[in-house]
Design a protein around this nucleic acid. Sequence first.
DNA 1: TCTGGGGTCCTAGGACCC
DNA 2: TCTGGGGTCCTAGGACCC
Length: 421
Amino acid sequence: MFALADCNDFYASCERVFNPALEGVPVVVLSNNDGCVIARSAEAKALGIKMGEPEFKCRDRLRQGGVEVFSSNYALYGDMSSRMMATLAEMAPEIEVYSIDEAFLDMSGFGRFDLAAYATEMRRTVRRHTGIPISIGIGATKTLAKVASRMAKKNPASGGVVVLSSPEEIAAALGATPVEDVWGIGRKWSRRLQEWGILTASDFAAAPVSWVRMQMHVVGVRVQAELKGESCLPLELVRPVKQSICTSRSFGRSVVLLEELYQAVATFSGRSAVKLRAEGQMASMVTVFIGSSPFADEGERCWFSRTATLKAPSMDSSVILKTAAAMLEGLFREGFEYRKAGVMLSGMVPRDQPGTTMLLFEEEPDEDRGTRLMAVMDEVNRRYGKSSIRLAAEDMNAWRPVRQRLSPRCSTQWDEILQVR
DNA sequence: TCTGGGGTCCTAGGACCC
DNA sequence: TCTGGGGTCCTAGGACCC
């Protein structure tokens, strides 16, 4: 059996932990640049505030409803997430951290326990240790655990815990789950399935496998098998290394000058390189993209991107920056209002692995110097704080998104604890 | 006027290898 | 008129997840 532990309204709940006055009050959290609603408390949902809705479109409703609105505080959410995961890890033999607010747990050794009672205890413990409310769903596959956790959230009478074990329980749960709410069935596929009269998870489970394979390929077949109780997705105990690393931002204002874009691209190159070294990887490809607002009028809309392969895999910030900067110059076209840029690294190669490709015709003059320099940079930043030293072309402050309603980072910054209301 | 930021996997087709 | 069998790598695009 798998359990899925899933936080309720995670970001909104985090805001409440250090500000109990928010209890019972509608709360929403906004995306970068205070653009869209990305988390809502139950009270905010009841007011009809939609997930992903732009703030400017619901501003009046937010004010009328007395909603407390916050910019996203990733330092706080990340820290609360690790506290919650640490608590869960103590209560199950194996855990897969699936996202910032979800974890799958291995329940296979709990045959002699009352699973529902144990899950209730896990819920209570997480709440006591972290202040975060969670729901727990348990089933024979990850997809069934997802179905169960959705029911635990929807149905208050469940006490936040749903276990699907008997065939009758499973059948009832699948019948009550709209097909678009099945994990792995997104917008496009659910619309297609609905056209064929497949409206619930139970309809989908009953569809002929050959038809599912034709329409949705192996991915759809896997979802279906999981719904039927056949486990295809194992618990992933060690996170695989990332295959790509991306740093990108919307600007919150228009940028027309190449020099300004250069500074943004330099900053994102530096951030991506830091993430790359933290993964212990080297990248062999660098992609740069710049673009207008996707909402710009036809003709003023643009999206340019280019990818270069490095002469040899690298983790050196300055090599990555030089490559990205050269591409930016080729990419840039005057006359557009740019609103977004990003730098992506891919073609990962493990560091310190013998047999990696080396340059054929050139000596590698600065390889060692670059490696040592980066090690020193990372160490200084570890000791004295992020971006204490960086490439001169970077300017994190200039490209930090607007966050006007940020709450204090009171679990990671001593000086901000004093700001707690 | 104002609209986020990360990721994954799969398929199909083209170019190439022996 | 007839024209093999088995691969790899790369790119683009489409679907999905949080």
